[in-house]
C-alpha cells in the first residue's frame, strides 16, 4: 500500500540536541503508533506529511514512554503519575514547547492532565496539524490517489470529539478530497465509542449481548461508506475488527486521516 519511492528520515531529539538544534515541533508517536503494525504505517505517514511540508520536527524514539492514559482510565493514578512525571522530565530536559500526537489519548493526556503535574506544552492532534496545513495552503489533495466520488464517513474518537471538542479538523481534511462525505446516524457529540477506551483495549469486554464495535458496524453499513476515516489507532483496530466481523474487508477500507492525506497527495 505504501509508496516505496518515498523515503523518510526521522530525526530524534537526542540527535538534534547533540547538534545543538531545536525542532519546531515534537512528534509524540505513542505506544500504538510505535508497536502496532497497522498503526506504524500511520506513524510513517505522519512523518511523510511533516517532511513534505518541511516542518522541522523530531521524535523521542526510545526515550518516549507511555503517557499513562490507560492506567489513569483504569484507576491506577500511581502508575499514571509515575509515567507522567518521568515523561515531563524528558520533555522539559529537551525544552519542548509544541507537540503533535498521533493518538487522541496521548493528545488528551498531555494537553489536559500533564499541566497539573507541571508539564505545560502546546499540544495538537495530527488531524489539527493537517487542517492547519490545508488552511495555510501547504497541503492540497493533488498528485495522488483520487477519492473523487468515494463515499467516506468519519468515526469520531471519544477523546478527540466529546473529550476535547475537536470535531471539525478531521472533517476539514476530508472535505478537500472532493469525495462524497456521509455522516453516520451517531456522529460528532452523539458519536458511538469504538469500544476500546477506558483501558477496554487491554481487557476482554464484560458480559453482554454483542461487542461495541459490532454495534458500530450497523451505523457504518447504514452509511454505505466505502472508506471509514479514523483518527485514533485504537478506533482503527476496533473498526477493522468490526469490518472483518461483517466480512466486508473487500468493500470497506479503514484509513486514518493521515493515510488519506498521504494518498491524496501522492507522498
Amino acid at each position: 500500500m505504501e509508496n516505496p519511492k518515498s523515503e523518510i528520515t526521522v530525526p530524534t531529539m537526542a540527535e538534534m540536541a547533540a547538534q545543538g538544534k531545536q525542532p519546531e515541533i515534537l512528534f509524540w508517536v505513542g505506544c500504538a503508533g510505535s508497536f502496532d503494525e497497522r498503526a506504524q504505517k500511520i506513524t510513517r505517514d505522519i512523518c511523510k506529511i511533516l517532511q513534505h511540508v518541511g516542518i522541522n520536527y523530531a521524535v523521542l524514539g526510545t526515550e518516549e514512554s507511555c503517557t499513562g492514559d490507560p492506567a489513569k482510565r483504569a484507576g491506577n493514578e500511581f502508575l499514571f503519575q509515575m509515567q507522567a512525571i518521568a515523561n515531563i522530565q524528558v520533555l522539559d530536559a529537551y525544552q519542548i514547547k509544541k507537540i503533535v500526537t498521533g493518538c487522541p489519548h496521548c493528545f488528551n493526556t498531555i494537553k489536559n492532565e500533564y499541566p497539573g503535574l507541571g508539564g505545560n506544552y502546546e499540544v495538537i492532534h495530527h488531524s489539527q496539524l493537517i487542517q492547519q496545513l490545508i488552511d495555510e495552503g501547504k497541503l492540497k489533495a493533488e498528485g495522488g490517489e483520487s477519492f473523487k466520488g468515494k463515499r467516506i464517513t468519519y468515526h469520531d474518537p471519544c477523546y478527540l470529539g466529546r473529550g476535547n471538542n475537536v470535531y471539525e479538523a478531521p472533517r476539514r481534511a476530508l472535505e478537500v478530497l472532493d469525495a462524497e462525505l456521509v455522516e453516520m446516524k451517531r456522529c460528532k457529540s452523539n458519536g458511538l465509542c469504538c469500544g476500546a477506551g477506558g483501558a477496554q483495549m487491554f481487557k476482554e469486554p464484560e458480559k453482554g449481548t454483542k461487542d461495541i464495535n459490532v454495534e458500530r458496524m450497523a451505523d457504518i453499513l447504514e452509511s454505505k461508506a466505502q472508506v471509514i476515516a479514523a483518527a485514533c489507532p485504537f478506533c482503527m483496530t476496533m473498526l477493522r475488527d468490526g469490518v472483518k466481523h461483517e466480512n466486508k474487508e473487500q468493500e470497506i477500507k479503514v484509513l486514518d486521516i493521515a493515510e488519506i492525506t498521504v494518498r491524496a497527495n501522492g507522498l
Partner: peptide, 10 residues
C-alpha cells in the same frame, strides 16, 4: 469495568 470512559453519558 464495563465503562469505556467515552463521555457519552456526561
Amino acid at each position: 469495568w464495563a465503562c469505556t470512559t467515552c463521555n457519552a453519558c456526561v
